[in-house]
Design a protein around this nucleic acid. Sequence first.
DNA 1: GTCTATAAGCAGATAGAC
DNA 2: GTCTATCTGCTTATAGAC
Lengths: 230, 230
Amino acid sequence: MSGDVKDRRAGEPRGRDARSQETREKLLAGALRTLVEQGITKASARTVAAAAGVNQALVFYHFGSVDELLAEACRYGAEQRVARHRERLAAVGSLTELLAFGRELHEEERAAGHVAFLGQLLAGAQAHPRLAPATVAGLDLWIAEIEQVLVRVLAGTPFAEFTDPAGLARAVGASFVGLELYEGVDPAGAEAAFTALEQLGALMAAVEELNPVARKAVAYTLRRQSARTR
Amino acid sequence: MSGDVKDRRAGEPRGRDARSQETREKLLAGALRTLVEQGITKASARTVAAAAGVNQALVFYHFGSVDELLAEACRYGAEQRVARHRERLAAVGSLTELLAFGRELHEEERAAGHVAFLGQLLAGAQAHPRLAPATVAGLDLWIAEIEQVLVRVLAGTPFAEFTDPAGLARAVGASFVGLELYEGVDPAGAEAAFTALEQLGALMAAVEELNPVARKAVAYTLRRQSARTR
DNA sequence: GTCTATAAGCAGATAGAC
DNA sequence: GTCTATCTGCTTATAGAC
């Protein structure tokens, strides 16, 4: 991969040709579109290339195999989406705000299908082991962001002592993917599920606002409870 | 959807022959095994028939198409698994018990992969619309059971007033599927996620055991909170 | 780098022997 | 009902012209 070609444009860090880079990105975007619109079972070199508007053989020239293209598309797509929301995530300061953000995120990502593609790859990873690490990496981008927010938001609440933000972030990420997949087959059901979760989250947020005495009682009970289950 | 076989009676079941019925069930079991072990992308007539130990053409004789076989396998598998746990679900009487049961269920179903196949079909349903209704039906079997338990378990807690069991059951079901898919690519991460959820559930269970005064404070705060978010 | 052409194999599905 | 054989089309992947 070292053929030093003179860049026609400045700012391109690689020695790659501009057109080549463009083709690569078309293929990555095409792969994502195919995953979203047709699912993993239809994500062949031909359909992806058609979605990208390029020749089928270029899949193999640029990525070596279909699986490799899908793996890179996973990283590419997740990176892109997480970056899009990073700023707003950084502004989340309370459980209530986090819930509101979750709903927004859902509405936005659902429309674009940018979470469902992770579900497709998660399913595909079973058959194509090459996909598993890439999918984990993509999901981990989300999980890392979620974890940061959770740490910040839970600090100072009675829950901080009894919850594991790392595990919780993984649960949130995986559940979100499951819910987006579910949305694909039963939109009404998924809507009801999201609303119910929002209510549940509001319950937790409410504890933040308890008066000191009640808060203490909750903390005490939690401590006793947790001693039993661990 | 009948007629390619001489039925003595009109209606759904065509093969009254013992051998025919046996072949059908072999194919259904083979389809489930294939989904679990190789995923939806490898679930072809040939691989399923091989897993079932029968001839490939019988897929089409008995089910008409591969999608139809997968759809029936979905119902068949979900029915079978839900039935297996129905008794124990009926015995769950508290949130704490429900949590313990959830963990058990996870351990057991994960080993057999009997939840992951729903994830595979959920992903496949995007491309094959024929699969969507069947997947919803399979998932609904679980959801209906979960909902019943939730209604029973939440009754008498301060949450009963502010949660929607139907929506919550859908959230639990979809999340469970997402987590089982996640388990396929990152077992350690999934384990952490389940543990964190267990802790979170324990927090809710703890509220059940609050003293009356604190309980009242929680209920009051919830009511105020819920007035704002609705 | 991108194209056309093509090899080799697997997919869904059907016809017809038994 | 079950089998073999086969048609058709789509799949991954490569060779070689441009």
